[in-house]
Amino acid sequence: MTSKIINMVDRAKDAEDRLLESIFAAEPIADDGFSNRIVRRIRRQIWIRRLALPTAMLVGGVIAIKPALHLVTAGSRLLSAVPPELLTTPAGWVPQLPVMLLGGALLVIGMLGTRMID
């Protein structure tokens, strides 16, 4: 059936079409490392994409560390100015606060880790 269709298509082509096909026909081009070069570029691209987020986090962390330390120092100075009975009260209101904070931090780290693996 397929060969019949091919024959019909072939017959439908006139001599001029066949001549043009022979003129346009080209020798196959040897690969000569062409595909390997592209695959290497693709692998490099994949690695760059994978490294982009951790690198950005690292660079951002380095840039942000100094202002963050200033912020912590300023915060501790501010806390020293606050009466001690006011500071102990929130922990009393929410006894699970340290656990919640730890859980939150672990969640953020987990999400970032998952994204990096992905």
């Binding site: 196959p28 081009i29 040897a30 690969d31 062409f34 595909s35 390997n36 695959v39 693709i42």
Partner: peptide
């Protein structure tokens, strides 16, 4: 796999 596709069709 993509490398094989390139090899097949690059010419």
């Amino acid at each position: 796999a993509f490398g094989e596709l390139i090899r097949r069709h690059q010419s």
